[in-house]
Design a protein around this nucleic acid. Structure first.
Lengths: 234, 234
DNA sequence: CGAATTTCTCAGGAATCTCTCAGCCGGACG
DNA sequence: CGTCCGGCTGAGAGATTCCTGAGAAATTCG
């Protein structure tokens, strides 16, 4: 659990309970304080009562558009940075146009790691998060920057694709810990990923070729369980 | 001899053998387990292999500064609290600035009582009595980490397969208690396991070879009933 | 739209683990 | 003291898990 997330309040707004559940669970697990709302009206009430530091807001709500929620909050000077959730279609462009200031958006379906990473970015930018604000992860001589998407080992730059990056980031957020196949699939792939779980092995293989090409191997298989990022035990 | 020091591993690092000797002797006399290193490189190797609970580290080493050792360990997330030894001069201030978290320092020349008192402080602060809030199970000098799946006895790492790990974990969750064959089969194997119950004996045998290889046996047979994890009588 | 890149599926083969089996050992008990 | 019985352990077959290359499908970007 991240210490830096302690006492940060996040309001999750979506009319689909399953989405709210999966996001809330993940955020709680990362140490955020979470509340939920299913409609625009509820969301406005919650903001007024609870003063969240940041909001995860679906663009499509039963009673009003997400933008309308944002507009009304702005009108009453209750500035809450917002991470919009939008379907992957034309509205994506719309969102892009409408997000200003500290806001950001992700398109459904998204991976939980993606969502949390963007949430962190927002908090970092708006200074909403108390404590640490670095965007760089390091383990041994491996470095990963969440802002610039740069990855390097021992100073030499490494080019990763988006999925490779998410996978490595999740591993670096949990150094030494053994992450199960299920955890990796849930966090790195979209929450509704239903395909062949062997993708994971393929991507581990890709990462190994790029990250463990030289230097001692950092990506280790724990047979029957999952994978872990750690130094070799000689 | 202090009981609380039992099974606590201290790594002493200094390039002057006489200093190492006098400290090691004192610590052993107080019941600590002690290993020594004379260079920064040796120290790093020892930490990786032996996983000490705390380190006594001279600031001036032939190959690198003590801080460099600390920095590298931090980079690989091998968090070991450190008691720095420094000469009584300007470096004292430097040390004060650089010690963070659970670390502390004493200036040479120091009294052994002083050193041991500060060592105790560190252990108390860091919950050095192994395993307070963590995912680690310990019994005697045996340690098992449920997050990293690492197992070690007396600091030496042990490699277990998935089934061996589950079996040992269940035993360590119920130390000293005699667990029946039925309980073990139900908890470690799938509840509907229908095969030959003699698998259990096979796996106990595997575990004994790995866990009880050296050191007094911890895995005991209770004839006609089951098995228990305990120290040998007498 | 077409090309390049990325993501995912699939299958062969290697490595390792799990479980069975059989012979042996050593304590329990008459 | 001899026999019986539960437990120990080495060997090995079968099953599982994992790795990797190749290519199909999807996505991105010009």
């Amino acid at each position: 659990m991240d210490d830096q997330a302690q006492d940060v309040r996040v309001l999750v707004v979506d009319d689909e309970p399953s989405i709210v559940d999966v996001i809330s669970m993940a955020l709680r697990h990362h140490g955020f304080g979470v509340a939920a709302a299913g409609t625009g009206k509820e969301a406005l009430d919650q903001v007024r009562r609870w003063h969240p530091h940041v909001m995860v807001l679906d663009v499509m709500l039963p009673d009003m558009e997400g933008f309308e929620v944002a507009r009304r909050l702005s009108a009453e000077h209750a500035e809450v940075p917002i991470l919009f959730l939008s379907a992957r279609d034309a509205t994506a462009d719309k969102v892009r146009g409408l997000t200003t200031g500290g806001d950001d958006y992700v398109t459904k379906p998204f991976s939980l790691e993606e969502l949390i990473a963007r949430l962190r970015n927002i908090l970092r930018r708006t200074g909403g998060a108390p404590g640490e604000t670095s965007s760089r992860l390091t383990f041994a001589d491996l470095e990963l920057d969440e802002d610039t998407f740069e990855v390097s080992r021992g100073g030499r730059s490494i080019e990763l694709t988006a999925t490779e990056f998410r996978l490595l980031r999740y591993l670096m957020l949990n150094p030494r810990r053994v992450l199960t196949r299920g955890q990796l699939l849930d966090h790195v792939w979209s929450y509704d990923f239903g395909g062949d779980a062997r993708v994971l092995e393929t991507y581990i293989s890709y990462l190994r070729k790029k990250v463990d090409a030289d230097g001692p191997p950092l990506l280790h298989t724990v047979r029957g369980v999952g994978y872990s990022l750690r130094l070799p035990k000689d």
